[in-house]
Simulated assay, not measured.
Amino acid sequence: MSTLVLDPSLPEGHRRLMATRPELLPPAPERPAWGGRTPGDVLAALPLSALWGFLPLVVGLVHRGRRVLLAGLLLQAALLAVWIRYGSTAFFLAALTVQAAAFLVHLALAGESPVAAYGRRHRGRYVTATMLEPLDAALLERTADATATVLRSRLDRDGLLDGIANRVILPRQEWEIAETLTELTRLRREQAGARSGRVTERISAMLESQEEALKVATRALALRISALEEYALRTEEAEEVYAEWRTLQDLADDGDAYRELLSRTVRDDLAAGEVGELTERARGLQASLRESVEQARLAGLTLIPQEG
């Protein structure tokens, strides 16, 4: 699946749907003819609508969905009732009516995917790795991986990285990087096009100057991505300590049960010592956790733009 970065200002519902099927992006900028419907959609709708018209129960059984099965059962019963009460002619006309309605519904549901429609509507507000040159695509993937590491962490969910609005800052940083990479790709392709033509000495000198500018910009952006990756790395390290600390906390919470168990076989002071050891480990790990979280926070704070 291609890496996808979305403009954080897009509507949340659109963002979620586009993120589920990035392979459907980008569509053609123009709305497709007939809403994207093809002769294949018509051919597929014909047998399905015929089944709905005459044997809807078969559709329900094949589909295996509870609602579709119930609809097929009720429709089949209704068609049989028409046949028994009014005869085969009425049954045939009713089945044709259902078939025509089913055909129109199938055609309405076919065509352009909602994801593709959003992509066309929001063109320029998303970037996929397939849209970029290989070097820029690799930088985009590094950015997306680092961002996801932080946002999916238990540390962030539990609010330990206080003072850093990750849900706001990181998507914005990710999008700014993606926009820059898009521009870098555009300029690289522009350069490649210029080099494919007649290159005079003056053109060559200009291209070399522009290529050096691209290298400087790429290095600067790579440093920004490295800072983001450092934050993700510190978060991962703190996450491991946090998981260990939570486990020890759970064990320490069971101290009374262990104390009672040990007191049945050894002296109470030994029992207290065994349980106390767990508590001391938890305290020591808590100090380590505070230090790890603080290091992650400091790495994250470097990503926040300074005002003024």
Rank of each mutant, 00 (worst) to 15 (best):
R16C: 10
L135Q: 14
T89E: 13
Y258D: 02
L79K: 03
S292V: 00
V266S: 11
D136R: 05
M18V: 07
V42Q: 02
Y242I: 00
F92V: 01
V105W: 09
T89K: 00
T38M: 13
W34A: 15
A213F: 09
T235L: 05
E208H: 06
V293I: 01
G276E: 06
G197C: 04
L207C: 13
G255Q: 11
G53P: 13
A33E: 11
A148R: 14
G163P: 11
A90T: 00
G87A: 02
E190K: 12
R290D: 15
A271V: 09
E307L: 15
G163L: 12
A296T: 00
E236G: 14
P114D: 03
A102Q: 00
E244I: 13
V98S: 03
L6P: 09
P305C: 04
R21F: 10
T147E: 10
A148M: 04
V275C: 07
P171D: 07
R67E: 10
D158C: 15
A116R: 05
L251P: 08
L261W: 09
A213H: 04
Q191K: 06
A222F: 04
E190G: 14
A19W: 02
W245Q: 13
E211M: 08
G65V: 02
V82I: 15
E274R: 09
S153E: 12
L155Y: 00
I225K: 11
T265N: 06
L285N: 03
S113K: 06
